[in-house]
Design a binder for these strands. Structure first.
Length: 268
DNA sequence: AAACGGCACAACCGCCTTGGC
DNA sequence: AGCCAAGGCGGTTGTGCCGTT
């Protein structure tokens, strides 16, 4: 079907009230129409796109549909371990700056990352009975969750049965060891290092935030000493398929252990 | 087989920022 | 400098799917 013959209308300005705006899920036909219009007129000027396409959608709605779904670069599906790691790291640096975080995950949209955070990460906080923004939960992420993710990524990159995404990540990060990961991209890079103070991550392009524990000796997560109590207790049975590895980490037993740790005065 | 609940994701809403006039 | 429209962003809601009872 030629959308330009059937769908496009004249560029007569119309207010939203006049053109009874359509809402709700997009149809395949609407998608095709929007794609065709963007291919011709390009991204941006979304109100014009909405008008020119003949879609009874707002410019905002068109923009959202394009950015989150129709763009060729958009990647959907399981969030890989590497992506999980990046999300955790970047969120602890920037907070709910979803679009900024999304810039570092090619093909992922801010909406997707936001949804991931809400459904997976906040669920874990709920199970731990602490606020997702609380110091306790952030510390748990920094000193338990993230180091374990790093270990798993390294382990899987060394495994011959590593998933394609894992292998690709290993390629991107170059010489991968348990102690250092460097993730580079066009807009900056992420360095992950594990030392006597536990895992630390810093963005080369933004050094404003460092994860130095207030009193490191209280965090039983030293890979140097091997007394990785938290890791041992929280590791559980990881799966490395990029799926719900967190669920396996945060099983009931582990959550109980972590709760105990969070209640420890020394920890705070 | 039906009802229910939880989850994941798409889409909307409202506020803020930016740029043009 | 002030106004307005458009775009961007984060929060929230709606909906369909799937597993469990």
């Amino acid at each position: 079907m030629d959308v330009y013959e059937s769908g496009f209308v004249s560029e007569t300005p119309q207010s939203e009230e006049e053109m009874d705006v359509r809402k709700g899920p997009w149809t395949e036909e609407e998608d095709l129409t929007l794609k065709a219009c963007v291919n011709i007129h390009g991204e941006g000027r979304w109100n014009s796109v909405a008008r020119l396409s003949g879609l009874k959608r707002t410019g905002k709605s068109c923009r959202l549909r394009w950015l989150n779904y129709l763009r060729p670069e958009v990647r959907r599906g399981n969030i890989s371990l590497q992506e999980q790691l990046l999300i955790l790291q970047l969120h602890s640096r920037w907070g709910n700056r979803w679009s900024k975080i999304a810039q570092h995950l090619p093909g992922r949209t801010d909406n997707e990352i936001k949804n991931y955070w809400r459904t997976r990460v906040q669920k874990q906080a709920k199970q731990l009975k602490c606020d997702v923004n609380s110091k306790q939960f952030r510390d748990a992420m920094r000193y338990v969750w993230i180091p374990r993710l790093i270990e798993r990524i390294c382990a899987s990159s060394e495994s011959p049965s590593a998933q394609p995404s894992t292998t690709a990540f290993a390629d991107r990060i170059g010489n991968t060891t348990t102690d250092q990961i460097t993730y580079g991209n066009t807009s900056g890079s992420l360095q992950v290092s594990s030392d006597s103070q536990g895992a630390q991550v810093s963005s080369v392009s933004d050094q404003t935030d460092c994860y130095n524990p207030p009193h490191v000796s209280n965090y039983p997560n030293s890979t140097e000493t091997g007394s990785d109590l938290w890791s041992e207790n929280l590791a559980g049975t990881w799966n490395i398929d990029g799926g719900d590895s967190m669920e396996s980490v945060w099983n009931e037993e582990n959550i109980g252990f972590l709760r105990q740790q969070l209640c420890d005065d020394d920890f705070n």
